[in-house]
Amino acid sequence: MTDLLEALVYGLTIFTLAAFVGVEVIGRVPSLLHTPLMAATNAISGISLVGSMVAAGANRGPVATALGTIAVAAASLNVVGGFVITDRMLRMFKKRPGAKR
């Protein structure tokens, strides 16, 4: 049990610090780019792919494999699709030709 609580506190430490970093970094994103931001964070949160991969590939019985495979498909759809669409949007943002910086 101590071991588990330790893991919990460790996880909370990481979570809290990452949340603060997130607030700092994301607070600087201008409203102009809020839609690409959402698409990008969507792709990044597709990181649950790494959990899905273990579920799908570890020979843990038919239920786990089936659920894991669907999860892998859903997460990869978010990761790949999210990056593709973020880039597609960002490519469209252009400055006025000849505008001064």
Binding site: M53, G57, V72, A73, L77, G81, G82
Partner: peptide, 14 residues
């Protein structure tokens, strides 16, 4: 299964 799921998802997402 892992690769099948990943390819299906990536293709659909793209």
């Amino acid at each position: 299964f892992l690769l099948a799921g990943a390819f299906a998802g990536a293709a659909a997402g793209t």
